[in-house]
Design a protein around this nucleic acid. Structure first.
Lengths: 237, 237
DNA sequence: CAGTGGTCTAGACCACTGA
DNA sequence: CAGTGGTCTAGACCACTGA
């Protein structure tokens, strides 16, 4: 038996809930009943059910029992592909070309700049992502120098700023906003497309603990970039 | 002490990893050392570390010990807002207008249709999402009638097809693809915009267990719809 | 107030794997 | 082969909450 018992119990109930055999609001057996059914101790049963509860598949209420949860339809796991890797996977060469680089204090009337730099300095970067020499995305990035002092000396064309940060900031929290828009004229010129052409816009703020690290706005040519998200309790089990 | 001890241990190490005090590849104390430090049993320590391992913050290797994991930069939690609720939150009225409805076998040369219906019948729906009477999105949907027999009799203007399915299919797995594109002419006419205007395109396939349920392609007017994703180990703890 | 889940203990045996 | 984590037991006390 390579599979632990708690995992078998968890998978049993996941399957019944996924298949609809157990519908939302249905009551599961009590821990006592499951102990008898699986011939194991209460800790083992409890561990299986705790995992399902953490995944949002069931709700546990004292005295009342354990119930199938209503599906949470609002959260998915989003794969954020590495742009450079995605380009290379298509057999193209990826390059990042820095268009502009400036270290300075934040402008008080720019909320993003104040958010990133607070009272310190920020690094403002504009650059192009190229696939086989053709621009496919433009990014505008702000980095807090106090949060990431090493960035000032980094060669950000050898490794793109996003990759450099990921390699040097050990863990991050981030918030991403995804939208579509017509390409503004200045970006369109840099990308070599018509102003107003459809672009996928990804805006992201990243923290290290409570400290802001970077804010970035990336515009991708339509069809150059897809975001893929998967959803389902299986992904958490 | 309202907070369980295993949760305190988990939060301690999460904090140290997030703050950078513990860097990737750093070794954590052994379970024996943590038992002494927190004055608790091995199960309690193990539970805290198992939760961190499940969240991807640490790697545990037998004989070698427990180590801070390299950040997984590729997965985020994506909030999929309910379009109707989002419109109402802006103080507008949401309505779904059915443009076309047809029950028929799949066309053999349409991969999406064969995927949804297999050998059975499918329901093909086209409709508009309206905010205060103005179109803001168009959707093209295929539903497998064998998987969801009740849908044939449903009033899909009173409740939009997406909402109806969520209420009647107890749990789902889904795969979503997000991109930007210029609006095709036929969709543009229905939306009352110029052909080629930028749109956010969301394509989703949904399963119930192993059975395909629905395939939908939605085009949103730019600025009418944002997708927001959050990322971070806190979300899983 | 009785039944349920939440937590925790002090052990045990085992599997894996690096020294 | 010794140290580490993975699993499991058979209990215990407690907190919550619906009947």
């Amino acid at each position: 038996m390579s599979e632990p018992l708690h995992e078998r119990i968890r998978a049993d109930f996941e399957k019944r809930i996924l298949s609809g055999a157990l519908a939302p609001a249905d009551r599961l057996p009590t821990e006592q009943e499951l102990m008898r059914h699986y011939g194991c101790s209460r800790m083992t049963v409890s561990r299986a059910l705790s995992t399902l509860a953490a995944a949002g598949l069931i709700d546990r209420r004292k005295k009342a029992g354990t119930f199938v949860a209503r599906p949470r339809v609002h959260s998915m796991v989003l794969d954020v592909p590495d742009l450079a890797a995605q380009i290379r996977a298509r057999g193209q060469a990826h390059r990042f070309r820095l268009l502009h680089r400036e270290a300075r204090p934040p402008r008080a009337d720019h909320a993003d700049e104040v958010w990133v730099a607070r009272e310190g300095q920020l690094l403002a970067l504009d650059g192009l992502h190229l696939a086989d020499g053709d621009p496919i995305a433009i990014e505008h990035r702000l980095i807090g120098i106090d949060a990431v002092p090493g960035v000032v000396a980094a060669d950000l064309e050898a490794v793109s700023p996003g990759s450099w940060l990921l390699q040097h900031i050990p863990w991050t929290e981030a918030e991403t906003r995804i939208s579509a828009l017509g390409c503004p004229p200045a970006d369109a010129r840099a990308l070599g497309i018509a102003a107003g052409a459809p672009c996928l816009c990804v805006e992201r703020r990243t923290w290290r603990g409570a400290e802001p690290v970077t804010q970035v706005r990336q515009l991708f040519l339509a069809h150059a970039y897809d975001l893929v998200a998967r959803f389902g309790p299986t992904s958490s089990g």
